[in-house]
Design a protein around this nucleic acid. Structure first.
Length: 363
DNA sequence: CACACGTGGAG
DNA sequence: TCTCCAAGTGT
């Protein structure tokens, strides 16, 4: 195969392989094997359902965290029709622990659109994909390139970092995103755009890392402006992050004498919407946790130690009050008694799982 | 554009 | 222990 020659940077500079060719050559030798990925060079075609599902799960989530969830979902719901017709609460419970639960709500909505309105086939264009719930600019481009072989400009946080370094783009994010996107467009090949995107992401994940990038192992080192400057790690320049406020809330741990706990389904608009949860007050700034009526009256015993959990944009301090009731008790509101012996199957988000752990640990 | 939205692993 | 932040989207 013929390597493209990039224009010489400086007079007399040695001609070099294009970024795409160097990267794809590296990818052909070092691509990670992942459950949703077809190895480079295989004749098989990637299944759009699996590509879509993996891309949704991978949004802001590490590969290691996604793999077991991906296996669970594809085993239980092998195609988009199966997922579209699945019980909604079952899907939400299967997502529990992965975070960003709006993804799960949109996942179900998207599967239903594809199955019921699009004849079970995903759109094969970026524009069509972009119209689906939960599919934004990145995901539309990624699916178009990876599943349908389209030339699409795929920009995620990895690509952003690699490209900002390659071209030493010093404009801080998010302002610098325009220049990064243009530069990515320039180096994206017409052929193998899907492999190129995945190769960029592999590179960003394993070599061109946020901290202490492994420039000595990088196939793009000869063409990297940031490496030439000797300071790859300063790119991309990011704005200072904001401080996390603390919020407080109260949990009503209502336990039945036969070892069942009262669990509710959270409204779609709330945080952790659509997920199972323990009853409690709203979470707000110190002292403000009002409006929380307990599910039943009676003597609630406050626990000494609370539970702390850190979300993306705030830290939560949860206090717990406990009451044990008889088998005939039927609390107000929607909810159900769940056996503590099988609490792991209730589909509780991690913050509530922490409370369960606290309430069931020995001592 | 800025902010809300989860979690767990790495350094 | 603590800080950073990952294959982003919706509003």
């Amino acid at each position: 195969m013929l390597a493209k020659r990039s224009p010489a940077g400086a007079p007399g500079a040695a001609p070099s392989e294009s970024v795409a060719d160097a990267l794809l050559r590296h990818y052909d030798a070092h691509a990670r094997r992942l459950p949703w990925r077809i190895p480079p060079g295989a004749s098989e075609r990637a299944d759009p359902y699996r590509v879509w599902l993996s891309e949704i799960m991978l949004q802001q989530t590490t590969v290691a965290a996604v793999i077991p969830y991906f296996e669970k979902f594809t085993t239980r719901w092998p195609d988009v029709a199966a997922l579209a017709h699945a019980d909604e609460a079952e899907v939400m419970a299967a997502w529990a622990g992965l975070g960003y639960y709006a993804r799960a709500r949109n996942l179900i909505a998207c599967a239903r659109v594809v199955a019921d309105e699009l004849g079970g086939r995903f759109p094969d264009s970026e524009e069509g994909l972009l119209a689906l719930p939960g599919v934004g600019a990145y995901t539309a481009a990624a699916i178009a390139a990876i599943a349908f072989g389209r030339r699409a400009v795929v920009v995620d946080a990895n690509v952003e970092r690699v490209v900002a370094r390659l071209f030493a783009i010093a404009t801080p994010l998010p302002q610098g995103r325009g220049a990064i996107r243009e530069a990515t467009d320039r180096i994206t090949p017409d052929a193998r755009a899907g492999d190129f995107a995945q190769a960029m992401m592999d590179l960003g994940s394993a070599v061109c890392t946020v901290k202490t990038p492994q420039c000595l192992l990088c196939p793009l080192r000869p063409q990297c402006a940031a490496h030439a400057e000797g300071r790859a790690e300063v790119y991309p320049v990011k704005p200072p992050k904001k401080e996390k406020p603390t919020r407080e809330g109260l949990i009503w741990w209502l336990e039945r004498e036969d070892s069942h706990v009262w669990i509710e389904r959270r409204g779609d608009k709330r945080m952790l919407g659509g997920m199972a949860g323990l009853p409690g007050t709203a979470w707000d700034a110190r002292g403000g946790a009002q409006g929380g009526e307990p599910p039943v009256p009676g003597d609630w015993i406050a626990l000494n130690a609370g539970v702390e959990h850190v979300f993306t944009h705030f830290r939560l301090l949860l206090s717990v009050r406990r009451q044990v009731v008889g088998a005939a008790c039927l609390p107000d509101g929607e909810g159900q008694w769940w056996p503590l012996a099988r609490i792991g199957e209730a589909g509780l988000p991690t913050v509530f799982a922490k409370v369960v752990h606290r309430m069931t640990e020995k001592g």
